[in-house]
Amino acid sequence: MGTVEYIQHHLANNAIGEGFWTFHLDTIFVSVALAALIIFVSMRLGKRLETGVPSGFQNGVEGVLDFVSGQVRDTFPGKNALIAPLALTIFLWVWLMNFMDLVPVDLVPMLAQMITGNPDFHLKLVPTTDLNTAMAMSLTVFGLVLFYNIKVKGLWGFIKMFLFHPFGKWFVPFNIVMTLIEEVSKPLSLGLRLFGNMFAGELVFLLIALIGGTLAVGIGALFWAPLQALLDLGWLIFHLLVITLQSFIFMVLTIVYLGMAHTEMDDH
């Protein structure tokens, strides 16, 4: 298998359907499975919560919750009971989906190919390297931003934001364009940042995997295989930081955008 085919094979989704009505089964399956994992573990934990001194796992979960609610307290003005659970959901889910990036790139696709008996079986394990997942979350956040913008500022206040922001009433057409770009760029940058980072990270893993896979022929494997392992370990450790950072950034930006939606614009 050639280098190009190898990478293309790994970056293709297991899809059914045509045109817009295409469903990426692997993306949906893995992300829903991880969501189910979150819910399952939460329910298990919920059954044996200790009010007194929390032990082990509960302590860790409380630490994460404390961290998230601290971020919300620091960044979010006012009160909204939805923000903290939303931020927590994003942090946990995005982190878990990103974490799939650290599973050896060939392991799960190979298992799937062995189980199904189909050597051409596609399985893209990391849902966040699918633009649909990243954009689904950023668009949901965008929807919430619009909703709270109108709820807090009122419909007229929301329109006023487009008309008189950022340059006052003498630049109304220009203001509309500027605010539109500003608002649309929020979900776009939010989703694309996550997607881009994870996609690039996955690509680097694939390239590292290629070192041992295609370059190593015969006696050369003695040199290339350890190099691959070393590079893989290095990128893995670095990527562990990246996935945490990306989920953290997604969470914080969500809080910030929703916070901006809750703030009254100052009149110009």
């Binding site: 359907g17 045109g19 817009f20 295409t22 990426h24 849902p127 633009l131 649909n132 997942t133 689904a136």
Partner: peptide, 10 residues
């Protein structure tokens, strides 16, 4: 690798 109905499911 383009936007499609997977988005809605997600």
């Amino acid at each position: 690798m383009s936007i499609n109905a997977t988005l809605l499911i997600q």
